[in-house]
């Protein structure tokens, strides 16, 4: 299968590859996919109190298109607010990377990873604030 130049570029020079400490309060972690399906994406977002994504990191087990989709996702979410990041659609990724139909699931996974990381961040926040308010009540 021939890859688009953009997929090859992300594969050869992945942007923001790595991990944050997932226990950090301002880090949201999303892990989507399954080894049996041949794709697992981990996307982590560092979000400030103003709700802006300051940094993003990914690790991906999957084909070149999966790696490129997650690498691109980290580039796109950086500097965006959480609300803006939630607007990113898999079809945008398909278009940017010129993915063939058989690889569309890679872009879906990247979109899901963003949503999952944000939801993890929000869950953490709610838990923390409720813990804080409980503490305050004592």
């Amino acid at each position: 299968m021939a890859y688009s130049d953009k997929v090859v570029d992300h594969y050869n020079n992945p942007r923001n590859m790595g991990s944050f400490d997932k226990s950090e309060e301002n880090v949201g972690t999303g892990i989507v996919g399954a080894p049996e399906c041949g794709d697992v994406m981990k996307l982590q977002l560092k979000i400030n109190d103003a709700g802006v994504i300051e940094e993003a990191k990914f690790k991906t087990f999957g084909c070149g298109s999966a790696i490129a989709s997650s690498s691109l996702a980290t580039e796109w979410v950086k500097g965006k607010t959480v609300e803006e990041a939630l607007q990113i659609k898999n079809t945008d990724i398909v278009q940017e990377l010129n993915l063939p139909p058989v690889k569309i699931h890679c872009s879906v996974l990247a979109e899901d990873a963003i949503k999952s990381a944000i939801s993890d961040y929000r869950t953490k926040k709610t838990q923390n604030s409720s813990e804080k308010s409980e503490n305050a009540n004592v």
């Binding site: 590859m17 991990s19 892990i31 697992v40 994406m41 981990k42 690790k59 991906t60 087990f61 790696i67």
Partner: peptide, 16 residues
């Protein structure tokens, strides 16, 4: 493998 979340998890001792 440096890029793989599965490798990272395995190294942390998580049973995949």
């Amino acid at each position: 493998r440096d890029m793989s979340p599965l490798y990272e998890m395995a190294k942390e001792g998580i049973d995949l």
